[in-house]
Simulated scan of single mutants.
Amino acid sequence: MELSDEYLFKYKGIYFMSDVVTPDYLDSLEDFDIRDSDVFLVTYPKSGTVWTQNILSLIHYEGHRNGTEETDLLDRMPWLEYNVRNVDWSKRESPRLIASHLPYYLVPKGLRNGKGKVIYVLRNPKDVLVSYYNFSKFSRKLEETDFVLMEQFLDGKVLAGSWLDHVEGWSAHRDDFNILFLTYEELKKDLRSSVLKICNFLGKKLTEKEVDEVVDNATFDKMRKDRRANYKHLSSELVDHTRGGFLRKGVVGDWKNMMTVAQNERFNHVFKKRMEKLPFKFCWDMSLN
């Protein structure tokens, strides 16, 4: 499969969805006005983004109360680069919750200077690839052709570019940001502890009951059934809801059910040496389910 201008375009080394964002708009983000109270969720695609968006929404909106019961995630935590609902950021009340897949060097300069807070969530790249492959069937803006997608993923010729470059970049420049790193795997292993860690980072004090409600409503089964949390409201021009959804399995280690021995060896050959230098604890064979 070759990348097509019909679906993706390259901007400063990174691939973006055509017809959803323009180079001019991406240029404008350099001077996006950052507030000290802003909370950014940054991920490489398919790394637990929707899950963490929902967690942050539940924390901020205190369990979907205060008149926001029917507000979906796209309005609770809009995307910075993919502003599909034309949010007027200047009119958003603080704290603003903002999602992004941008690499560190394309985020607003105010964020790079330590204003606002960033929560960066990363996931085993093998599971990221499997999730990306299944998402490509669901999206009308991406193409999928069996597992040949793996070679494009290894080359960074997919949405958001190279996983390694994305994670390495944010990690190497962590001192430029007010940032908390979390892994998908630790969220799966102990969701409550992860929620408390996020609350502590944000300075958000919840009662024990409120924490329990966040954890309960952020479980995978609850999110999959919740139209506010599962992107069911997303336009049919962007996705084909008959072919899947943003929330599929929500498991760790699904790559073992997809990759052949040869594909796994190929992946390790490209990724493992650079991954070993990352300051994050990863285990290829981690199983927490």
Rank of each mutant, 00 (worst) to 15 (best):
N83Y: 06
S57I: 05
F181Q: 09
R123W: 04
V130G: 10
Y25C: 08
A99H: 13
E81P: 01
N178K: 13
M77G: 01
G244I: 03
N134Y: 07
G63C: 07
Y184A: 12
D190Y: 05
G244P: 03
P103V: 07
Q263Y: 01
S94A: 08
D72Q: 05
S171F: 13
Y82P: 00
L26T: 00
Y61M: 05
K188G: 07
H269C: 11
V270W: 00
Y133G: 11
V20I: 13
L164K: 10
C199P: 06
N217D: 03
L159K: 01
F147W: 06
E62G: 09
H101R: 01
K126D: 09
T49V: 13
E151K: 13
Y104R: 12
S235F: 05
D27F: 05
E6C: 03
E143C: 13
R112T: 10
V252H: 06
Y132Q: 02
L58V: 01
R228L: 03
D285M: 09
G203F: 10
D5G: 15
L142V: 08
V215A: 04
V214S: 06
V261R: 01
T71R: 15
E69Q: 11
L26H: 04
K137C: 11
F40N: 09
D146F: 05
Y105G: 00
S90D: 13
E143H: 14
V20G: 11
E2W: 14
D19P: 03
D72R: 06
L58A: 05
S287R: 14
K157W: 03
P103F: 02
D190C: 10
V214H: 05
E62I: 08
V167T: 06
D165I: 02
V121P: 10
V270S: 03
V21S: 08
K273Q: 10
V50Y: 01
K117T: 05
D221R: 14
L73Q: 05
T145M: 08
G67H: 06
G13S: 05
M77V: 08
G244K: 02
Y15L: 04
T43K: 00
V211R: 09
L73S: 03
M17H: 15
A262S: 10
V252D: 08
L102C: 02
H64R: 15
H64T: 13
F177W: 07
I98E: 01
N230R: 10
S139P: 06
L122R: 14
R227N: 11
N83T: 04
E143F: 15
V148S: 12
L154D: 12
F220P: 02
K232M: 14
R266N: 12
K277D: 10
T260Q: 12
N54Q: 13
M17L: 15
S57G: 14
M258P: 03
L182S: 07
G244C: 00
D155M: 15
I98D: 01
F16C: 07
S136A: 09
K126G: 08
V128Q: 10
D226H: 00
G13P: 14
S136T: 07
E143W: 12
F135H: 02
